Amino acid sequence: MKRIKVAFFAEILVEDFDGASRTMFQLINRIDPEIFEFLFICGLGPGLLRGFECFRIPSVTLPLNTTYKMAVPFLVQQELREKLNHFAPDIVHIATPSWLGNFALKHAKQAQVPVISIYHTHFISYIDYYFKYTPFLIEPVKQRLAESQQVFYNQCDVVYVPSQSICGELLQMGIAQRRMKIWKRGIDAALFSPAKRDPGLMRELTGNNHPTLLFASRLVWEKNLETLFRIYDLIQKQNIKCNFVIAGEGIARKACELRMKSAIFTGKVSHEKLSVLYASSDIFVFPSVSETCGNVVLEAMASGLPCIIADGGGSKDFIKQGFNGFTCSPYQEQDYVNKISLLLESNRLAHQFSNNGLEHSRGFCWNRLAATYFQELQELSKIDAMVLA
């Protein structure tokens, strides 16, 4: 039986690097080598993945976020073309509309090979944060980015989008609805579970028995950290007895520590440790509006942790207001603090959110999502065969 060949392009293929990487590895770790043969092309990653070659491209560090690198395929384009021609993929998978992604798209079109992409990162939502000191550039940059993404995604055969909210924004951007399919995110219910609750660990971490507010994410400005600072300030001002625990690492950590002097910073933690933090906290607070999906919200729900999040981005699709959590006006700290106070004062409401959030999270299954993806590859390979015939 001839295996289906997939050329898989991504900037970074390191399993726990970020939410996009974790999503990709949920698929990579489920590849059936009897049905599929993959060639991975990336800027940062190992030499082999699941026994398949991983061809690494020279990359440059991004000036606005030095934890990320961008592959520069033009430096090795002859070698890369030869490798792709020799591999002769039936399908091209592109993670990001970057230099590498556009190189992959051009190759696919020339070779008449179908293209699938997963919309991982809502880059347009980052512009407000990274251009806040040059506000006159915000709208022109957004317009340019929207136009480039419209051109890119309208050349893909299938684009997996994680939420209805993001799908709506992409439609407004001009991306054709017929190309988009809702493909949500899954959860590992064995890892993220209320059974991981450990009050002793939280007492050891905080030194008291006060309720704990948890924020878990990369510490980067596009996570709406300035609103998080104001939430913290207002809680301090109102003398609400609670702990603030910040789990994560990133370029903004020092600024966070300066602005939230009484908060507890864990740094980057393993998924196992994170699962205990979720299950042992009392409220998950997440003001980010830049999420395509918001995996951390789903992880918190699966851990039985009530969520108070921004009414923005893909995360908000997880919340049915007042039923399994609260959404807040994204930049209004008073709204968050009012709802935090309400939840801290009502055990009944907290239990309701915990139970309903847990039940909601059970509908998100990685095995089912991966099966959909691999079935999609098989369907696309049939289209490719018909075109070539």
Rank of each mutant, 00 (worst) to 15 (best):
I383W: 01
I166D: 03
C328L: 09
N367C: 00
L344H: 02
H120K: 07
A385Q: 04
F229M: 13
T266S: 12
G101P: 02
V245G: 10
R50L: 11
E226N: 06
V161Y: 06
V285P: 06
C307R: 05
E299T: 10
E345H: 04
P162I: 03
G250I: 11
I240D: 07
Q26E: 08
P140S: 05
F326G: 00
L80H: 12
G19V: 05
K268T: 03
K2A: 02
E291W: 07
F123G: 06
V158F: 04
E376K: 02
E37P: 06
P287G: 09
F131D: 09
L343C: 04
D282V: 00
R253M: 07
P114S: 12
D233K: 15
Q375H: 11
A111Y: 01
N324D: 14
S315N: 06
K196E: 14
K237M: 13
F40N: 01
N347L: 07
Q143Y: 02
G47T: 12
R362S: 12
L170I: 08
R197Q: 07
F318P: 05
P46I: 11
I124V: 15
I175Q: 00
F284P: 07
S315K: 02
S217H: 09
S262I: 06
T134H: 12
F286W: 09
E359V: 10
G200Y: 09
L214E: 08
V289N: 08
E345N: 10
V92D: 02
E15F: 07
L27R: 01
Y129T: 04
Y130A: 02
I94T: 04
T206S: 10
L305K: 12
V276E: 12
K132L: 04
P306Q: 12
Q164E: 12
K196N: 15
L75E: 10
L145G: 02
S275C: 08
A190E: 15
Q149K: 01
H93E: 03
L234I: 11
L145V: 07
F103P: 09
F74Q: 13
H107V: 09
T121D: 01
F265I: 14
D157E: 13
L100D: 03
P194D: 13
E37I: 03
D311T: 05
F17C: 12
M24I: 00
N154Q: 08
A7E: 04
I124G: 07
I28D: 02
R22E: 04
L80S: 13
G200T: 13
F229G: 04
R218G: 11
C365E: 11
A389L: 06
Y278S: 14
Y133N: 15
I182M: 04
V159N: 01
N85T: 11
P114K: 03
G314R: 00
K382W: 01
A104V: 05
L258K: 15
V14K: 13
G325D: 09
K5Y: 05
E345K: 09
Q321Y: 11
S125V: 04
L201C: 12
K241P: 05
L349F: 03
L369S: 02
I231A: 13
F38D: 01
E82F: 04
D128C: 05
I264V: 15
S262G: 07
P306H: 10
I124R: 08
N347W: 03
S303C: 05
R3S: 06
F74S: 08
F323P: 05
L44I: 15
H107I: 09
L225T: 06
S165R: 05
V220W: 06
V141K: 00
C365P: 03
